[in-house]
Every structure is written in structure tokens, then in C-alpha cells.
Amino acid sequence: MEPIINVEYITIFSSELYKIVFILVPVLVSVALVVWLDRRIWGAVQKRKGPNVVGPFGLLQTVADALKYIFKEIIIPASSDKAIFILAPVVTMTLALVAWAVIPFSNELVLADINVGILYLFAVSSLGVYGIIMGGWASNSKYPFLGAIRSAAQMVSYEVSLGIIIINVLLCVGSLNLKDIVNAQQDLWYVIPLFPMFVVFFISALAETNRPPFDLPEAEAELVSGYQTEYSGMMYAMFWLGEYANILLMCAMGSILFLGGWLPPLDVYPINIIPAPIWMILKILFLFFLFALVKAIVPRYRYDQLMRLGWKIFLPFSLFYLVLTASFLFYFDKLPTKLF
């Protein structure tokens, strides 16, 4: 007779539980640091100092901000749909954090090594639009609603080209597992053969995370601050944390797909003794640096130009490059027939 409670399952569960904490806490801390970094880079580009008062170099600025948000009153508009209004920031935050489960930081250091890792990441990032739509609709107010509609259209449009870019990489790898994708780049990072796709990926990631120059959902000149207008206190902070966690996630995705994940740039002595997770973090930070630079130096797009870029330029171009990659791999007999 089978035991009612499988002891093995409980041990697996408890041994996995601390891993979840060990991945969530660093992500949250790095989100706080990254917000500070973003503001510092932004300031440096504009010849300002940026936050430099709280803590050493202003490192604790985000903590101070978060404390302020916690002690502020949460105001729920009377005419709002209360359940969905409260659920929206929770959804944003949860989805931004839940995706980190599959991100590999080295060959061993991964929480869930699943077969369809990249599809999981793509699915979670495509679910991210719901936090915004829910927040915008539930506020029952014009500007949040307009912001939500804009954002939904924008994210759905750029997801299409993002999907095709991912297919480009998958064609070269032959597996949906994130570890396999990184290990396939042992000889050559995909940023070199697929450089145009890397550029398109980077711009699509900007649009997907509603970062400037594509921050139309919260264009303050037109829409107050878009879907976040009615939010205050901790709920606003959750939107904000979720947004930055999503940006970091996109950077991680970019470094896995194109920059060889945890692999060192050259497999020679002084470089390859640096542990793998450090490389992964350095690459994420490099991509984030680019994100922050773009925020500081590029003006906001007009909405019709944004849509045109997504549908009329990126989609045909990435489809064309897909055909090119497939034909190249087929002609030179480089198709990955080895099954992982």
C-alpha cells in the first residue's frame, strides 16, 4: 500500500523552498540597486549627480523610497473595481518574479531546469500585459484606461517580433532549454552571427518593458502617468518594482540568447577562473547599462511611429532574417540534428 504522504516529496519540497528564497531575495535586492544605478546613469548623462545622499554613494536611496511608499496611505478610488484594482500590482510583481525560476546562472545554478525554458520566459513576459490592463481598466478613469489600451497594443505588437527573434536563436540551438542555448554558444556567441537580431531584440525589449523611448503608456505629458495614475503608496511601489524586475529579466534573456549567458568571453586562463554567475551578472548589468543610456539620450516616440516600427519594419525584417538563418544552416549543413 502506498503511504498517504510521500516522505520523498516533502523532502524535495523543503529542499526546493530555500532555493526559492535564495533566488528571490537577490533579485529583489538587485532590483533596488538597479533602480539606483538607473538614476545615477541618467544623472551622469545629464551632468547631474543623481541620488547621492542616502547611504554610501546614495546606494540606500531606493530603500528610503520604499520606506516612504510603505508608510503612505493606499487610496482606492470609490468608483474603481476594487478586487481587480488590488490584484493588478500583485499580478505585475508576481509575474516579474516568477520568471526568474528558469534563469540559469551557471551550469548547475538553476532553480528549475525545464525543457521548455525559453517558452516559459516568453509566456510569462506575454502575461505581463495583464497587470497593466487590469490596473488601467479597474481605475475607472480616462487616462489610466487610455494608457492601458496603448500599452496592451504595444506589448502585443512587439511580442510578435520578439517571438520570431527567439525562433532565430532556437534554429541555431535545436533545443528550448535555456542551459542548452547557453552551451550551444561555447564557440561563438550568437550576437556575432545574429547581430541584426540582437539589435531588434534590444529595441523590442525596450518596447516590451515600456521603457523610454517607448514609454507611451505612461507618457506624462499626455496621460498623467498612464495606468499608474490612480495608484498610491505600496501598490504603486509594487508596479514600479515589477517593472524593474521585468527589465532585469529582459536583460537576462538577452544575455542568455545572444551574449552566451554565464560563459566567459574567452576561455583562457586569467579570464575563465572568474566564476560563471559573475559573468552572467556582468552581462545583465551591461545590457541594463544600455537600457539606462537609451532612457537618457533618446526622446519619446510618437505612437503611430511606434506601431509602424513594430509591424512594418521589425516583423518583416525578423521574418526575412529567419529565412536567411534557416537557409544558411540548411545550405552549410549546420542544422542542429543532435537531440539534447
Partner: peptide
């Protein structure tokens, strides 16, 4: 797993 993820991407995401 593939079908599950496609379900999420296609139906929920789009």
C-alpha cells in the same frame, strides 16, 4: 509541457 506553454502564449498572451 510544450502544449501547456503554447496554450499560455497563444490563448492568454494574444
Amino acid at each position: 509541457e510544450f502544449l501547456g506553454m503554447i496554450m499560455l502564449i497563444v490563448y492568454v498572451g494574444a
